[in-house]
């Protein structure tokens, strides 16, 4: 590793995970994750069937210091050896964002280093770069989570263009709602993924909304179809519903991702966001990339879901390309990805 190396502490509290990580970047722009700690609140929210913002904010207040301590200890680094502290400043739940941003600014002040406010979505786009050294651009990124479904063209780190997005529910939201309707609990993604392995994906022909229609998505009709089908066929096997529903979602995601990748002449295609943990999506992603002769990148599950390593990486890039964020900046719960780049 040559040249100056920068090391950042990243903090992520935009939703229901309290996370901190230490990431280094060498002169060639390659990232090295020195530590990545996450305190999940899933248990706290499970009984409500979804994330409760006030519950999330309160949990972040309690977990943040211990998670930061864990990240620093694991990285074997003291606060005074850092080159900055980054935190997610949006989009996300305002009360949750405030905890991470306030703590990050406080740490940066005390350690006498810059603070960097990072866009959470931009963070997700850095996740694939954490593990792969020689990424060739342009890269097509499918960002799928409980809050987002987006197709993004990346011409380089931090240089991205939104190509398509969901017009209603996010893909992960559809998983949660269907799971909730079927009485499977929360979060819906992992449960449906598990059930689907025992079901027939062709058992029920659920609609593929807007399949041949541009690069935007719509999942609310699919959710309604599932509800109607189960209502009309109360004896249907839940594993077939899960498998058929999942297949309908994955079909649309894959078809649009391939079309978007063609459109920008992508050399590679990568997944990001919590739904990127879905085993069927990962399998079909690899097949699609191979069929189209593109390099497929599948980040580790730990970097697909919300984590702070991706925030630290985005912070390192932002610090170098744009500079520190002023201490009098706040949070932006609706910070759009398009506002992060010029």
């Amino acid at each position: 590793m040559a040249g100056p190396r920068s090391v950042l502490l990243g903090i992520e509290t935009s939703c229901d995970e309290t996370a901190a990580a230490v990431v280094a970047r060498d002169a060639d722009g390659n990232f090295e994750v020195l530590s990545s700690a996450v305190a999940s609140q899933i248990e706290l929210h499970a009984r409500f069937g979804g994330v409760v913002p006030e519950v999330a904010s309160r949990a972040h207040i309690e977990s943040l210091n211990p998670v930061v301590a864990e990240a620093l200890v694991e990285a074997g680094i003291g606060g005074d050896q850092l080159d900055g502290v980054a935190a997610t400043a949006g989009p996300g739940l305002v009360g949750s964002l405030l905890v991470g941003v306030s703590a990050a600014k406080a740490l940066a002040m005390v350690w006498g280093v810059p603070y960097v406010g990072v866009n959470h979505l931009e963070g997700h786009l850095f996740a694939p770069l954490l593990e792969e050294a020689e990424v060739r651009f342009p890269l097509l990124v499918l960002l799928v989570s409980g809050g987002h479904t987006m197709l993004i063209g990346m011409e380089g780190p931090g240089r991205c263009r939104l190509l398509g997005r969901t017009l209603d529910d996010a893909a992960g939201e559809a998983f949660d709602k269907v799971a909730r309707y079927l009485g499977l609990g929360y979060p819906g993604g992992p449960v449906i993924d598990r059930l689907a392995t025992q079901g027939d994906p062709a058992a029920i022909a659920f609609p593929r909304s807007m399949l041949h229609d541009g690069l935007d998505f719509s999942f609310s009709g699919l959710k309604t179809s599932v509800v109607n089908h189960v209502r009309r066929n109360p004896d249907v096997d839940a594993v077939d519903v899960a498998a058929s529903f999942q297949e309908a979602v994955v079909d649309v995601l894959i078809a649009k991702a391939r079309r978007a990748a063609d459109g920008i002449g992508a050399l590679g295609m990568t997944l990001a966001g919590g739904v990127a943990a879905n085993s069927r999506l990962r399998e079909r992603w690899l097949d699609a990339a191979m069929a189209d002769d593109r390099r497929a990148m599948l980040p580790s599950l730990a970097y697909c879901t919300d984590n702070a390593a991706m925030i630290a990486a985005a912070g390192l890039w932002r610090l170098g390309a744009i500079g520190p964020t002023s201490l009098d900046s706040g949070v932006d719960p609706n910070w759009a990805l398009s506002d992060t780049t010029s």
Partner: peptide, 19 residues
């Protein structure tokens, strides 16, 4: 006010931790 408390307490706790 919860919003204010989160900012003040998160800031104060992080400063004490770092120092």
């Amino acid at each position: 006010l919860f919003t204010g408390l989160r900012v003040g307490i998160a800031t104060a706790k992080a400063m004490a931790f770092a120092l």
